[in-house]
Amino acid sequence: MTATAPSYPSVVPDAAPALVLDGITKTYRSKAGGVDALRGVTYHFPRGSFTAVMGPSGSGKSTLLQCAAGLDQPTTGVVVLGGVNLHGLSEVALTKLRREEMGFVFQAYNLLPSLTVYDNVALPLRLTGKRPHRNDILGVLEQVGLSDKVKRRPAELSGGQQQRVAIARALITKPSVFFADEPTGALDSNSSRQVLTLLREATDRAGQTVVMVTHDPVAAAYAERVVFLSDGLIAGHLDRGTPGQIAAAMSDLER
């Protein structure tokens, strides 16, 4: 907890990792005593990387994502995102950081049902107080292949289309880090492929960083590195693995 942003003076901005986790622990208090969800995770996510986080249920992968995105406070340890230490930030400062630097894609599509596709995508810009440019919105919608659904509402779209709207909404603010939690969990394989390709493109084309929690080896294979989590600790990693290799590593872990 003593480390603050100035503790990383040697880091040159360009080479700086997009996201740094330093000694993250998270203990949930309950009546039966504490539950350690994370027991000391240190990891640097390089800028422009696509990292998948895998692990058995209860290994702490969702907690890791929530702490990394500033949605939850780690019990101890430091999270630095884009050079900013999240510890001690006010709710408003955190919100501003979130809307400028982070994009979110979750299993549940998380669109506002009352807004059209266009308005859903434009919402983060409006929340920032900027006037959304029509061409920008149509641009991202074209990028995710939904140019013809601009006026629809979420209920009129398929699950895969809704997920692509969510990605478009995350893309519009040009965030430096994407957080994805089981983004393909509720999709068929065809839709999954489209969604994962979009995330892959974000790193390849725009140099954005993607952190994706998943339990699906096929999805994880889109990442260049898979980090395995077990019992709240990093158990190892695998670079450029095939779905088969990743699945094998997972079953080793679960054994």
Partner: peptide
């Protein structure tokens, strides 16, 4: 729904 708005960048004031 409100949590979602907060997630994509709405401040408590908003």
């Amino acid at each position: 729904e409100l949590g979602l708005l907060r997630l994509i960048g709405a401040t408590p004031g908003q």
